[in-house]
């Protein structure tokens, strides 16, 4: 699954999450798996929760405003993280 800056993302309904300190625990009802998101992963997850649909570009812009990171690093690591979330059926892309 290749995602680009223009890809729009939404959280799937078959999950539930809870904030635990600086991290987030997510349960996927469909697969039965449960996960831990680190602090940065939790930040991205909270943005997706607050916005029903969000483009990868918007996500990156918010990260660049809040965190001290180079754009190229941010882009690469955000893409990798989102692809992991898609693989685990926690988020989906929409047309």
């Amino acid at each position: 699954m290749n995602i680009t800056s223009n890809t729009r993302i939404q959280i799937k309904k078959s999950q539930s999450s809870s904030v635990l300190g600086t991290e987030t625990i997510v349960l996927n009802y469909e697969l039965g798996n449960y996960y831990e998101l680190n602090e940065m992963g939790s930040f991205i997850w909270s943005l997706l929760q607050a916005n029903p649909v969000l483009s990868v570009m918007k996500l990156k812009e918010r990260m660049l405003v809040e965190f001290d990171v180079e754009e190229s690093v941010c882009q690469e690591e955000l893409m990798s993280f989102l692809e992991n979330l898609i693989h685990e059926k926690l988020i989906e892309t929409i047309a």
Binding site: L31, N33, Y34, L37, M40, E66, V69, V73, E88
Partner: peptide, 23 residues
């Protein structure tokens, strides 16, 4: 004539903790 300092960045990570069906 101006900002709050930016927070330290860490790589976003997703870690699989387990599976409730197997449990």
């Amino acid at each position: 004539h101006q900002s709050s300092p930016k927070k330290a960045y860490k790589t976003p990570k997703l870690k699989v903790l387990g599976n409730v069906k197997k449990l």
